[in-house]
Design a protein around this nucleic acid. Sequence first.
DNA 1: TCACTCACGGCATTTTATGCTGCAATCTCG
DNA 2: CGAGATTGCAGCATAAAATGCCGTGAGTGA
Lengths: 158, 158
Amino acid sequence: MKLDRIDIRILYELQKNGRITNVELAELVHLSPSPCLMRVKKLQQAGYITGYSAQVALAKLGPTITVFTEVTLKNHRKMDFDRFQQAAEKVEEIIECHLISGGYDYLLKFVTGSIGDYQAIMERLIDMDIGIDKYFSFVVMKSPFIKPHLPLKTMFPM
Amino acid sequence: MKLDRIDIRILYELQKNGRITNVELAELVHLSPSPCLMRVKKLQQAGYITGYSAQVALAKLGPTITVFTEVTLKNHRKMDFDRFQQAAEKVEEIIECHLISGGYDYLLKFVTGSIGDYQAIMERLIDMDIGIDKYFSFVVMKSPFIKPHLPLKTMFPM
DNA sequence: TCACTCACGGCATTTTATGCTGCAATCTCG
DNA sequence: CGAGATTGCAGCATAAAATGCCGTGAGTGA
């Protein structure tokens, strides 16, 4: 499946507003509702759209802390990576897991209720003996901005 | 405005599926459609829900690189932070900006088409003279998982 | 030029959203 | 304790949207 400009525009608009009605979306991309809906369905089926989600202002619900953690593993066999990833994925508070640089380190993104919660989770991970050698924490004081959308506009022709 | 368990459940479900129909959502939270819709509207109006977006599999559209960059500023007056943030926000490829640790450093998240694009953007930022002292790049080789939802489940009673 | 394919627009039907009305539970203040 | 007020609910009716079907026109290759 190959995407044309209209598909890219659809992706762009759906990133900005995932709950736009098909009728409105069709107007924005200059199509009538039917073919527009057909394209959206195809984009979903082909995996270009993996889901939709509401952006929740977590901070309004109560105190929250975001922490980025750089983790180094003791060993670097495939088994070691797999074990660590599986353990990390099960932790609800770890919302992102990235393998960085030369492939020996992970960068994790945590969201927890407090620094105490974060420490408790990290201690639990250490005790679980999933191959963590050492880690370094970047505690987020403030997030001036977090854009909910990816730079489709600059990366692809529209 | 105070939220009860049902509101939290609504937020949770809308995070998992932002395009769920009101009828289905109502069933999941054990309400009839009317009061359910009323609550969603209130959550939006009160700012607990800041928007909806489609998750786009950017990697399927073409090659992409994600980079986390730690940036240190030369000076640390309010003016210096403001200038940097305003410049960073205008760069489409910078999708997150976090102020970390003691308040002197930023952690940025970039998404670009290639390492070359990333370098070009960084060089442009340096040349713009917005107070960047030095920076360190964490290039993402692979992202084992990125969860689209926040840990509402563990942080709040449901 | 003609047959074929593909994508579109328009229309009809089904599904969903949305506003209204009345009822039940809870709260409050005598 | 008890009566009125408040809050939040379900059910219903109407408006809006999604969805499937069909005919049409542009582009392609023989």
